[in-house]
Structures are given as C-alpha cells and as structure tokens.
Nucleic acid binder design. Structure first.
Lengths: 221, 221
DNA sequence: AAGAGTTTGTGAACGCGAGAACAAAACGAG
DNA sequence: CTCGTTTTGTTCTCGCGTTCACAAACTCTT
C-alpha cells in the first residue's frame, strides 16, 4: 500500500460514516425528485432516519457543503456525496451463481440506477448456459478471467451455494477482483487488500428472533 | 415494558455480540457436520472469521460453557447458542411482495433449516394470486391479519418496491407483528417496541465502491 | 502427586463513535 | 448598518466495543 501524499480528498472518513453516506444519498435523491431545492440537516436526518447532529458530523468529513442559517442545496450535496462514494462513475460488476438469488440480483434495478452495470452472469452448471437473464447471457464460470480483463471489473458478487463460495472467491482474486459482495452463508478467506462484505439473510432473521424472544420473555415475566 | 425480575437468562447481551452469535452458530454447525467433537476458541474464531479474544468474551455473556485446558464441546455449545438466540423454537414468518426478490426469499432453504417457517406469501397484485411459489400459494395482502392471527406470526419480511414498504409496515404493526426485515430501499418509521432490520443490496455495493475508488486513487498517487 | 503445558474467562486499557452543546456564519428586518 | 434568528460546523464528553494480558482451571506426563 502506497503512502498517501495527495492533500485533497484523501482525509480518511470513518467506516461508520461511509456506511451511512449511501443512505443520505438515497434520501437526497428522493427529496430532489419531490422538487425540494434546499433542506436543513434536520430535514435530511429525518428522511435518513438518523440524528441530525450525527448527520452534520458525517457531512463535515466530506467538506463544508452547507450554508449556515440556510441548509444544504439538495442537488449540490447529492452530487458531492455521489462523487465521494464514487458512484458518479460506472462500476462494472459480475455476478456468479445464477440460482434464485442470482436471478433476483440480475433483475434488481437498484444496481443499474446507482452506477453499477452487470457485465456478466456466470454459472458453473452447463445446463444454465442456455439461459438469458435480464437480457444477459449466462456464461461458463471459466470465462471469468476474460470478462474481468475486457471490462476492467473490480467488483464481484457471489450468489452461489456456500460450498462453492470460497473457490469462486479465490478465482475472483486471481483475476484481479478486489471487492467482493458475498451472499453465500460462509466466511471467506481473502488476502489483504481485498474487501469483502457479507449479506446473510438468515443471520438478520436470527437477530430479530433473539429480540423477539426477549420481548416474549418480558411479557410473561 | 415490564421490569425484568427473572434472575436467569436475562442478563443483557451487547448488540454487537448478538449480531455475531448466528455466525458462531453456523460455524459450529459446520464443525459438527465435519465430525469435530471439541474445538478451542482459536479454532472456532478462525472458522467464524473473528478474533479469539472477542469470541471468548462474546461466549462469556452466555455463561461458562467451555472447559479450561480443553475447549468447547461443539454440540453442547451449538445447542446453547441456538437456545439463546431462540432458534430452537419454530418462528412463523410472512413474506410480503413476491417479485424477483420475494421469489428468491421464498425458495431460500436457509430459513427453513434455521428455525424459520414461511407460513404465507402475500402480494397486492391480483394477477399474482394464481401463482404457487415454493409450494406456497400467493395470497392477497388483505389476508395478512387473518394469517398473523391464525399462525401467531411475529416476524414479517418486506420485499416490495420502496413506495409500498411504509404502508406494508404500518399494516404489519397493526396486525401485531413486532419484528420486520426490510429489503425495500426506504427508511421505515415504526412505533417503539417494533424492531426493524434493513438489508439494502445497493448500499453494500456502494460501500465497496467507495473503498475501491480509494484503492484506485492510492495506486495512481 | 506434583509440575509442565493448555486453554478458558475476565479485568483493565484503549480507541472509536454517538450525542449534546455551543460558537461561527449567513440571512432578513428595520 | 445593526440586531435577532436560523442553521451549520466543531469541540467535548460519555459510553460501548475491541483487544491485551493474565490468573484460574483443567489435562497429561512422569
């Protein structure tokens, strides 16, 4: 990892703030589409479901984009956040594993509208290679390297069964992919420098179940 | 909310720990299926992708289920964690919104195998009410109250478009559902006492994009 | 039976994030 | 131009979560 020398735009933003920026961005888009030109931190915080002090602190890491006594220009702030996240540019993405979830992901319009372009759908099962999902041919997993090279893909999505996920991740890393979104129910081992984010549907439900159980215990206490 | 008087099993477990318990549980199940009888905190931590000190501290909130100098009995610890989370019992769940994602969720085997039973699929669109997904009839959204009442449903999953999500949530709360898993791209407002967890696919990708952009900047610096 | 070797459970230190509170800056009225 | 009002940007404090480090407890060998 090279040392950071550039003065501009490389202050490090806390991870917790990074995770909220997309939420603010979505709220700003909604406000913009409803014709709102200016909003206060209070307005935006309510739309994003956070505390207004936290919102202002988060935005202060990006710079000083508001006007005291007035608030924030919705479209201007929207652009600044989008630029900071990096979604003003186009991110090519590959999805591996075209089962039920892979289908849903391929058809998910939220990717396209937010700067992500699905350039390929891959599956190891040859019987799926006839399929066309969301207007995209399903191709053999072995085409991964070529696709990554030709499209400059940096982000991969894993929607395979858990048993296959580590192999897919290894191949992705070999091909030069450095960010992985993992929907498989397994912990991936990857080298340093590769980012993995995990989404596990059943874990979310289990967390809810824990709290639900406690509520039930409290009621019968 | 009633005061907690029961001495046993009501120590409050930190939220961060609760979020990791399902990960430990999954790791233990994998270990158990591979025939492992005993494991050290180091082993389990590696399988779960966390620090072993953190693992031990997390487990210490549940009680003292290990043996010094030996480690943990895999099946025993597995049961204890499952019991603490509440997945030794069966949780009936309804899914509202049977689009691409709703299909994927209805077919997701990870729910069933972890104590969650999908008792109904609901959709507001009458043209879908002919469909049978994952062996379950798709029914009108207005049947929600009856289904919740008859099955004692406490957990609802929202997989509708963002525009409909708040209405669905309101109706769920009215019917007595007190835990909601929200896949729609919107922030839900719910009364106190109702838990909401949000899963937003495009937000996860945006977080990856942010880090990817920084890596690219670092390389060209 | 005693000592060497493991591994858990936990006390203590540390760092990060949340929220309160306020000073600084912009606007508008008179 | 000045004063009051509004709202941002930032400082400060507090609490939570992570990690280290070690004593307590158990096993095994001799």
């Amino acid at each position: 990892m090279t040392a950071r020398t550039s003065a501009e735009s490389t202050r490090d933003i806390p991870e917790a703030t990074v995770a909220r920026l997309p939420v603010y961005l979505r709220a700003l888009i909604t406000l913009s589409e409803s014709g709102t030109v200016t909003c206060s931190s209070e307005d935006l915080a309510r739309a994003a479901g956070v505390n207004s002090a936290k919102l202002r602190k988060d935005l202060s890491y990006l710079g000083s984009y508001g006007t005291r006594g007035v608030g924030y220009d919705v479209d201007y702030l929207r652009y600044q956040i989008a630029r900071e996240i990096g979604v003003t540019q186009d991110w090519p993405v590959v999805i591996v594993g075209i089962g039920n979830l892979g289908h849903a992901l391929a058809n998910y319009s939220g990717f396209r509208s937010r700067g992500f372009r699905v350039v390929a759908l891959l599956d190891a099962d040859p019987t799926r290679h006839e399929e066309v999902v969301a207007g995209i041919d399903v191709r053999p997993f072995d085409d991964l390297e070529q696709i990554v090279r030709e499209n400059g893909v940096a982000i991969g999505v894993i929607a395979t069964p858990a048993i296959a996920a580590q192999d897919v991740a290894d191949r992705m890393v070999e091909c030069g992919i450095s960010s992985i979104l993992n929907f498989a129910a397994t912990v991936l081992a990857v080298p340093a420098g590769v980012d993995v984010r995990k989404v596990d549907l059943s874990i979310e439900l289990q967390i809810l179940a824990y709290h639900e159980q406690r509520k039930a215990q409290a009621d019968t206490a």
